[in-house]
Write a protein that binds this DNA or RNA. Structure first.
Lengths: 197, 197
DNA sequence: ATATTGACATGATAAATATCATGTGAAATC
DNA sequence: GATTTCACATGATATTTATCATGTCAATAT
């Protein structure tokens, strides 16, 4: 392994761990010292790979988004738009997703912490949100953008709320209620356009 | 002012400031040193009033909830349940609420940070959520609890998402889309029960 | 009037934070 | 093979964190 390859591999390891920790422990929990120790290095070398903590946070956020791939592409092609939306929400609002934030969507994991981050980080987060909405529009066809925005907000909020509640029965109920509401919304959006517009 | 009164007054000042800062800057941003400095005291005296930082965070959370009062009680009595729900969501998802987190609802402000807090804090947060849902059930009548849960998740998520987005046009669109979705849901819940159940 | 209490100040501690300066050894280049 | 480069280690700095021990002075109790 050449030196450049080794450096790239190290950077990958840092990023992988950082993106997991960012999702599990948030912006504040993701500390340089601990991160490097867990990678098996010391903290000093960190700045060879990233110019600052904020740069790391941004890269880790983007890495996390990349890891997820595009969930819209993964849907089977022969579903109606409403069914596609229901599936997206159902997968997002799954117990497995709630229980594994470190491999899940960072948008929900960081939702209320974003305003306390730096300007660049906020910009990067907003770009991820915009990209997610674009993915949906491209795959599901043009609809009033507010439809997907509301479904996204419900998914982000429902997942974050479920994670915030220590009682698992209540937490399950939150996921169920939000999946149900997403389904109602998905159908209502179609009805509304089909019925009148 | 007696000594006990003075102590109580000091405690109030600490709590007021802490509850504002908790909502504006989150769990991590609310530091004892800065807090006491801004109250006009030094950090040492803090532990006369609170046994720990977590105790402060819990008290500040409860103070914030208390400040808001019960928004359900503030609704005019002659509205239908669906109209009441729409109003609640509309007020929650208002630009003024988004722009003043320090006087707003802490449930949304702390949404994604709760899992990183201590056990006691999480418990306290969950109790606030439960109380909010109870308030609604009492005032609006018995309905499947999932209905209000989903409306709450949509409101929390929508507000947090709006605060996370730096572009004000996009942020406004989020608020609008979530208000609209809340209205659709509120009507759909009534239709569903009226139509079949 | 004297003794006591207790709210707060001062200052210390210990841990954790981000960041950087310098050293070192091995890989890459000549 | 000698020289250079650079990824990373070591260790330092400066800040911030929660927490506590001790001192002080004014309000209370006796």
């Amino acid at each position: 392994m050449s030196r450049a390859e080794k450096k790239a591999a190290t950077r990958e390891k840092i990023l992988d761990l950082a993106s997991a920790r960012l999702r599990r422990e948030g912006l504040a929990g993701n500390a340089v010292h601990r991160l490097m120790r867990d990678v098996g290095l010391t903290h000093g070398g960190f700045y060879v790979h990233f110019p600052s903590k904020e740069a790391l946070d941004i890269a880790a956020l983007q890495r996390a988004m990349g890891d997820l791939g595009d969930p819209v592409q993964a849907l089977s092609k022969d579903l109606s738009r409403a069914e596609s939306r229901k599936q997206l929400s159902a997968r997002y609002l799954a117990r497995s997703h709630r229980d594994s934030p470190e491999t899940g969507c960072p948008l929900s994991a960081l939702l209320s912490e974003v305003p306390h981050g730096g300007t660049e980080f906020r910009r990067a987060y907003a770009a991820c949100v915009a990209q997610s909405l674009l993915n949906r529009q491209e795959a599901l066809g043009e609809t009033p953008p507010g439809e997907d925005i509301a479904l996204l907000a419900l998914a982000l909020g429902g997942l974050a709320l479920a994670r915030a509640l220590p009682d698992s029965a209540t937490s399950d109920a939150v996921l169920r209620a939000c999946r149900e509401a997403s389904a109602i919304l998905a159908d209502a959006y179609e009805d509304r356009r089909g019925g009148r517009a």
